[in-house]
């Protein structure tokens, strides 16, 4: 990937990447993940939101062999290495699709402020909590 131009040192904003679409069928999920990975170099306060069909992006056991596409879901498990540690999943979107937290990838990070304890990155939140989280953001990028 290209080298980012980190031109605004010292400014920290709250960035939320909102993922609303299924992982395959369109390219939005993959290209959203590419923004997240590049954006990690900018040391911003980053979170990801998964709602609507976007919750399918982090379902475990994905197998893309039949559709000739790369399975990029393992990349979500590496987000902790990029210091992207807050993944909010909307409870109602899971339930509507017959899913629960048990169906999701195990995504964790090592908390440097807590002796590198391994902690879950995924937080299942209700719709009204998601609304509040969105209201707190400076920048929302919706894919």
């Amino acid at each position: 990937m290209e080298e980012p131009d980190v031109s605004q040192p010292g400014v920290t904003k709250k960035f939320m990447y909102v993922n609303r679409r299924a992982p395959y069928g369109t390219v939005y999920a993959l290209e959203s993940l590419e923004v997240v990975l590049i954006g990690a170099a900018f040391d911003q306060d980053v979170s990801l939101a998964f709602l609507d069909d976007g919750v399918f992006q982090i379902v475990k056991g994905q197998d893309t062999a039949g559709i000739g596409m790369k399975n990029f879901s393992p990349t979500y498990r590496a987000l902790g290495d990029y210091e992207v540690t807050k993944l909010y999943v909307e409870k109602e979107s899971l339930e509507t699709r017959g899913l629960s937290e048990d169906d999701l990838l195990e995504i964790t990070y090592e908390d440097e402020d807590d002796d590198w304890a391994e902690k879950p990155s995924i937080h299942v939140v209700k719709r009204d909590e998601m609304t509040q989280l969105m209201a707190q953001q400076d920048v929302i990028l919706s894919f």
Binding site: V11, V35, G39, F42, V139, L141
Partner: peptide, 21 residues
């Protein structure tokens, strides 16, 4: 033509980032 860093930079440097999709 430039990199995705230009998108993040725009988010940081602007008062408002408006998406059309």
């Amino acid at each position: 033509i430039s990199g995705l860093g230009q998108l993040i930079d725009a988010g940081i440097a602007s008062d408002r980032l408006v998406t059309f999709g």
